[in-house]
Design a protein around this nucleic acid. Structure first.
Length: 276
DNA sequence: CGTATCTCCTGCAAGC
DNA sequence: TGCTTGCAGGAGATAC
């Protein structure tokens, strides 16, 4: 599942690959994935004009031209692959964009078996106005005093801390893996109510989240499961997981057995001794 | 209003 | 071996 660090990696590759190139052909193989794709707007935003820049907000990928922006979300099984062939190479290829360069064409394939991804577009300069971005919380790596920011939300909330961390209206980009791993590093039990935690706990959680995200970005994305780079290479498994998916294995710190529970329908792993 | 639960989808793995 | 079942997950929709 591409999480924030993986998306950051894709954005960098896309910028290196497509910036300055012009999409000369756009072929959709579906008119919807999670929701209908605004195909005319997408074409209008991208076709026949140079890509000026590629950005990330939350886990969205934004490709800008002079007239607008193409917007992608990889969901949990999505990939953007730069291939040498125009022909779909995989069963669930939903979109192929032909980018014309001086040397050779680049074919950007959007592949997403589980169709949890999104494709949209915004015309005009301010893509921030697109509905996708209206409700989003802060960027964890850009927020000054993330700990204080989180505490301000958490101090008046009885939700479990893990649910707060995964709420994109509060802070974006912290999916299940990073929530579990950050809470482990911070020594905080995932079921603790947000209001029961001290400012110091929040500083520890914020530091752990930033550290894990930064490490993963530096490593080119963690690629825990389905993630592949734009060249189709599997990831580097650079981040060793302390708790995620490690049911009944022993804790790297204390040797205690890693616990597995469900929180609002999502799996949570933790060490009952290291996390209080 | 805040919070919890349901929903979308396919591929894979476990269990019988 | 071939079936069924459960699970993975972001985030919008819906329900309380």
């Amino acid at each position: 599942m591409p999480e924030l660090p993986e998306v950051e990696t894709v954005v960098k590759s896309l910028a290196a690959t497509c910036q300055g190139l012009t999409a000369t052909e756009i072929k959709f193989y579906r008119k919807d994935i999670r929701e209908p794709i605004p195909i005319p707007q997408f074409r209008k935003a991208l076709l026949k004009q140079a890509v000026v820049s590629v950005e990330r907000r939350s886990k969205y990928i934004i490709m800008n031209t002079k007239t607008g922006s193409a917007i992608f979300h990889l969901g949990m099984s999505g990939q953007l692959l730069a291939l040498k062939s125009k022909k779909p190479q995989f069963k669930h290829t939903h979109l192929v964009m032909t980018f014309t360069g001086e040397a050779q064409n680049i074919y950007l394939h959007f592949v997403d078996p589980r169709r949890f991804g999104r494709i949209s577009a915004h015309l005009g300069e301010a893509w921030e106005q697109h509905p996708f971005f209206g409700q989003l919380g802060c960027e964890p790596l850009e927020q000054r005093s993330l700990g204080t920011y989180l505490w301000n939300y958490g101090k008046k909330s009885n939700r479990p801390i893990k649910s707060l961390l995964m709420d994109s209206k509060v802070v974006v980009g912290i999916g299940n893996i990073y929530a579990c791993e950050s809470l482990f590093l911070a020594g905080v039990h995932p079921e603790r109510s947000a209001a029961s935690l001290s400012p110091k706990d929040y500083q520890a959680i914020a530091a752990a989240a930033k550290k894990t995200l930064r490490l993963a970005i530096k490593a080119g994305g963690t690629s825990i499961k389905d993630f592949k780079s734009m060249e189709g290479k599997s990831g580097y498994f650079a981040i060793s997981l302390n708790v995620y998916g490690r049911s009944d294995e022993s804790c790297n710190i204390c040797g205690n057995s890693i616990g597995h529970i469900k929180q609002s329908g999502r799996s949570t792993w933790f060490c009952g001794l290291c996390q209080k």
